[in-house]
Computed example of a mutant assay.
Amino acid sequence: MDKYELTAKLRAAALAEGFDNLRIAQARELTEEGRRLEAWLNKGYQGKMQYLENHFEKRIDPRKLVDGAKSVVSLSFNYFPEEQQVEGAPKLAKYAYGEDYHYVLKAKLRHLLALLETELGRPINGRAFVDSAPVLERDWAKHSGLGWIGKNTLLISKQRGSFFFLAELIIDVDLVYDGPIKDYCGRCRRCIDACPTQAISEKGYIMDGSKCISYFTIELRDELPAEYKGQFADWMFGCDICQDVCPWNRFSRPHQEEAFRPKENLLEMRREDWMELTEEVFRKVFKKSAVKRTKYKGLMRNLAFLEEA
């Protein structure tokens, strides 16, 4: 089978799995991106996310993650919900309404790897990634033309906005490669102006992760810094502000993935329900959720911080 036919079959299979789009770039070292990452780390923008400092060489060269890698396949999967939380409730990032995307998407990627082996009639050397390994996923998605990296540092698509997950297959298979598209942010600065903690640089395209509400409410294990009281805009887990204000997200449409539908009654929980949340209820509601990452103690810390503001 030639690479054109194989690429077409892979793209069709990805769409059948529920992915919105699939684009491909040739595996190589990302030299320029490596320099930018090094500068970002040197400024301490990673905060206490020390894991971002690890495996630098693997981050910038997928061939060091997968021997013989030839193609980086980037995929997007919509998670925009049909419903929102009740007004006045402490806010969850929309991606956390349903089951943990890491597991849901990883299973779909494994199906695609199996398909490639079947079509080729041989084992392939390849790995599936869903935001869980040293992969510069937004840069690869940009190089393949899945979208452009916006001023809020998220990948944006003209057709879909930015409420989608990214996933990758890095494989030792030659495929048909795509190319990047232009940046359509223009003069817009809504995300910059809307960020309560000024985490986005004045000109955009650089995020100080150590100031991001998502970092504070998910990644940071320490006490939340007092100087940020009153600046979280009621976000208790993650933050969607820079996406909610982005004009391109007027094109977002509700997802169709059953696993990402919110747990029963989750969106109806009011402020008092959250404040009275017990560890038992937390475990039940977030059994298969990404919210487990912050643990019960962390979520209650975040809620208390909101109340103190």
Rank of each mutant, 00 (worst) to 15 (best):
K48A: 14
T217A: 04
S76F: 02
T294L: 01
R122P: 03
G88E: 13
E53D: 09
F286H: 03
F216Q: 10
P196T: 01
G238W: 03
R221I: 09
L105C: 05
Q50M: 14
P247K: 09
R190H: 10
R271W: 06
Q46H: 15
A199W: 00
D240H: 08
E87W: 08
K203W: 00
W248A: 08
R36C: 04
L166F: 07
K229R: 15
F232Q: 01
H255S: 06
I241T: 13
E223Q: 14
K43F: 00
A199P: 00
P180F: 04
V281R: 15
D174I: 02
K58P: 04
L266D: 08
V86H: 08
E119I: 07
S162F: 12
S201W: 03
L10F: 04
R59K: 15
A167G: 07
V73S: 06
W248G: 04
S201Q: 04
L75R: 02
R59F: 04
N78M: 04
E53C: 14
L116K: 01
V285R: 12
H255I: 01
L155H: 06
L30Q: 14
L30D: 15
K211G: 00
D234F: 02
L112D: 01
R23A: 11
E38F: 07
Q84I: 05
F163I: 11
R250Y: 10
C246H: 09
K58T: 11
I156M: 14
A290I: 11
E5L: 13
K91A: 12
E53N: 12
K297E: 15
G161R: 06
A114Q: 09
Q26E: 15
R127G: 09
R110A: 01
D178I: 10
A96N: 07
G88P: 05
F260C: 11
Q243A: 11
E119G: 09
K3Y: 02
D240I: 03
I156T: 08
S74K: 06
F163E: 13
D2W: 08
K106D: 02
F216I: 03
R160L: 13
L155C: 07
K203Y: 00
A107L: 05
M1S: 14
Q243L: 15
A14Q: 05
K9C: 06
L266Q: 12
P225F: 07
A167I: 02
R59Y: 06
K263G: 15
K182C: 01
I181L: 13
V285S: 06
Y205L: 04
S157Q: 01
D183E: 05
V135G: 05
N21P: 00
K284P: 00
M1D: 08
F77E: 02
P225W: 03
L52Y: 14
G34E: 11
R127C: 08
D208I: 00
R36W: 11
K91S: 12
L15V: 11
A8D: 10
H55I: 03
Y97C: 10
G34T: 10
F237M: 08
G98L: 11
V176M: 12
Q243Y: 06
M1R: 12
P262W: 10
V86L: 13
I124Q: 09
I181A: 09
G18P: 02
E202R: 02
F282I: 12
E99S: 14
Q85K: 13
Y103E: 12
E57C: 07
E219T: 03
L6S: 07
L65V: 10
L155I: 09
G44H: 08
G238I: 05
E257A: 14
